[in-house]
Design a protein around this nucleic acid. Structure first.
Lengths: 214, 214
DNA sequence: CTCAATCAGTACCGTACGGTACGGTTCTGT
DNA sequence: ACAGAACCGTACCGTACGGTACTGATTGAG
């Protein structure tokens, strides 16, 4: 009944627990799900297995907590509220594209996606849904709104914004995400995120850019 | 020293062994890697565990054999040898797109990709490389040749054919592959493969289609 | 100082799986 | 018919892991 209880927070874990989750994430990134044993986590985090079970219920709860904790760190980019120029739109989209590539290629993202995919193969879709909804979904929704606004301002042809977003997504990532998940390495050209982002946005504007504009 | 030995074949497994691999694949599709225990395979296939180890060495060899066996079934589409019309090109591309979506969404493909991704998380990239090279790589190379030929015939703007292929790939699949791997389900619109394929090829032609043509 | 709660560390249990060994059976070539 | 190989079914072994129980140390409140 301490005053702590009344503090409102979206993160339902204590600092100590979050530190443990970060340790667990390190193990996951380093060695995959196989390396993520309760004993290893307890050793790495300097806590007892008993505490792990007390805090997270069971192993599945622990995995869910890892994903949840990491997803809670995702921050959607700021929205452009006022009107903006077509040039600004292009810059924003390029920024989005570069950011998307970097996030998707990061060791942490790959490890979490591999974990969720492993769970999905056993029929448990919970982790995957969390990942999609809380992770990529955030920035996706934000970018979709940006596209929608751009359409209203006449920078883009009118079309379902969600569809346009998906096209942009495909143009940016192509098959790189799955290839990375499979352990393949990107070519030198593919690692040049700035150029890749420019090309993707350029192609996107060819498809959705409004022709009737200054 | 039977006459069988002299028969040339790319499939290094006997019929019996292939039947076992098919049984193993069924288990994999049904329950993921976790369900793919040597005991379960032996029970399902009606063979002994000892035979499994005799034929495939160890469990990893068995997994590799499953992927290899399935990849050997992939047949690249026939090449268009002579000149062809732009309309034919579009039809071929739509056919490719539909086929790609169907293959990628199939339970077997998803199970194999999940398996390889699980291995990749432990640092073993072998399965992933096999999957990329022997599976998708085949039809990819074939389609890339098609695009290259179309460029030479003036149906498409001149560009690196491989780059164009990747753009087409991204336009067709977008983020659906990863979402399926994560256990997400496609929307009704996304399940309409014919429409999706048409839209993707249409967008692709807007980007790469030659303007200076009849 | 004392009591209660928390937690690290360790030991322990049951189970499941990879891999091996062996007896009995079927198939094959001679 | 016979010998030998291949093979099925089962039992078995060692190990690793998920989960639980216990002990002792630390901490904070009254």
């Amino acid at each position: 009944m301490a005053s702590q209880e009344t503090i409102k927070r979206d993160e339902p874990f204590t600092q100590r627990q979050q530190a443990v989750l970060d340790c667990a994430l390190n193990l996951l990134v380093a060695g995959g799900e196989k390396a993520l044993t309760t004993a290893a986590i307890a050793r790495e985090a300097g806590c007892s297995k008993e505490s792990l079970y007390k805090w997270f219920g069971d192993r599945d709860g622990l995995l869910a907590a890892i994903v949840e904790h990491q997803a809670s760190k995702v921050r959607a980019p700021d929205a452009l509220d006022g009107p903006f120029s077509k040039q600004t739109l292009i810059q924003e989209l390029q920024h989005f594209a570069e950011n998307l590539i970097e996030v998707i290629s990061s060791d942490i993202s790959l490890a979490l996606n591999r974990l969720a995919i492993g769970q999905a193969s056993r029929g448990d879709v919970a982790l995957g849904r969390t990942l999609l909804h809380k992770g990529r979904g955030r920035i996706g929704a934000q970018t979709t709104r940006l596209l929608s606004a751009a359409m209203q301002q006449g920078h883009l042809e009118t079309a379902p914004a969600k569809e346009a977003y998906h096209v942009l997504y495909g143009l940016v990532l192509k098959d790189t995400h799955v290839r990375l998940l499979l352990g393949d390495e990107l070519t030198a050209a593919e690692q040049d995120t700035a150029t890749v982002a420019r090309k993707a946005v350029s192609d996107f504007m060819k498809l959705y850019g409004a022709t009737t504009e200054d």
